[in-house]
């Protein structure tokens, strides 16, 4: 396995670059990042729409979510790949196809996560914000979403990992990301499929595991900030003041 890594490691990492287009793990990461960056705002919009008090807005978002969730991602990819050129008259690359399909797909799933997060913020938070005179949008932006998204961090990360892994389907439409590279390597070696695909699994594992660690760190950092670090014993300070009869 080490010799495969030695001979083909660069190909798994960056594809045929710089002789050919950038590919391999680098392309996987780029696709995942772009899909992630684009799907997140969409998901927030869907989540807001799903919790809206305006019925048509809520229903459209619900329809979108239900339809997308009921379709396999692979179908979405094929449809985007074949339908977009038909509709627009322009051919689009596998790369763009993949990102569009992933964003549409994740918008539905991540949107549900955002919706759950918004619903889980205590009603009193909204009341306190609105009682001050904040508008719906101010309240969402400053009060509800920061708390909702933080609380949903583990679920959001889950979806991000799904995005990363789902980019592997791009090899079916000829995008030369890391799975495609492994497929080519296997075709050249012919005799070592187990080793090649084990290597591929290793690449995905490292990528997704790093994402998990990153999210864990992020969660921990925000948590610490919220609880206030370093922790001090507030109760005893308070008690001392009362005992000393200090003016409060």
């Amino acid at each position: 396995m080490l010799d495969i890594l030695h001979d083909y490691g660069i190909m798994l990492l960056i594809g045929q670059y710089p002789q050919g287009p950038l590919g391999g793990l680098a392309l996987t990461v780029i696709m995942a990042l772009l899909a992630l960056i684009a799907s997140f705002p969409l998901a927030v919009l869907i989540g807001l729409a799903r919790t809206s008090t305006i019925a048509p807005v809520r229903n459209i978002a619900m329809g979108y979510t239900y339809v997308v969730r009921a379709i396999p991602l692979l179908l979405l990819i094929f449809w985007t790949y074949f339908a977009v050129p038909l509709i627009t008259g322009y051919n689009i690359s596998g790369f763009i196809t993949m990102i569009v399909a992933l964003v549409v797909y994740e918008g539905a799933y991540l949107g549900e996560v955002v919706r759950a997060g918004i619903n889980a913020v205590p009603k009193g938070q909204v009341e306190a914000a609105r009682a001050m005179g904040m508008s719906y949008w101010q309240c969402m932006r400053k009060i509800v979403l920061p708390q909702a998204l933080f609380n949903m961090l583990p679920s959001i990360l889950n979806q991000f990992i799904m995005i990363t892994k789902n980019t592997s389907l791009a090899y079916l439409i000829g995008t030369q990301e890391v799975t495609f590279a492994a497929y080519q390597i296997n075709n050249q070696l012919l005799t070592q499929p187990f080793q090649v695909y084990a290597l591929l699994a290793g690449f995905y594992f490292v990528l997704c595991f790093s994402l998990s660690r990153l999210a864990k760190w992020l969660e921990h950092t925000i948590d610490r900030k919220r609880l206030g670090a370093p922790r001090i014993n507030v109760a005893s300070v308070e008690a001392n003041q009362v005992l000393a009869g200090q003016p409060k």
């Binding site: 205590p122 009193g124 938070q125 009341e127 306190a128 914000a129 609105r130 009682a131 001050m132 005179g133 904040m134 508008s135 009060i143 920061p146 708390q147 933080f150 919220r226």
Partner: peptide, 19 residues
């Protein structure tokens, strides 16, 4: 909203923004 901004409200459960 303008009207609410001129009425202070204090809740039983405080409802401070924890973040």
């Amino acid at each position: 909203n303008a009207l609410r901004s001129r009425v202070g409200f204090v809740f039983q459960q405080f409802n401070l923004f924890p973040h």
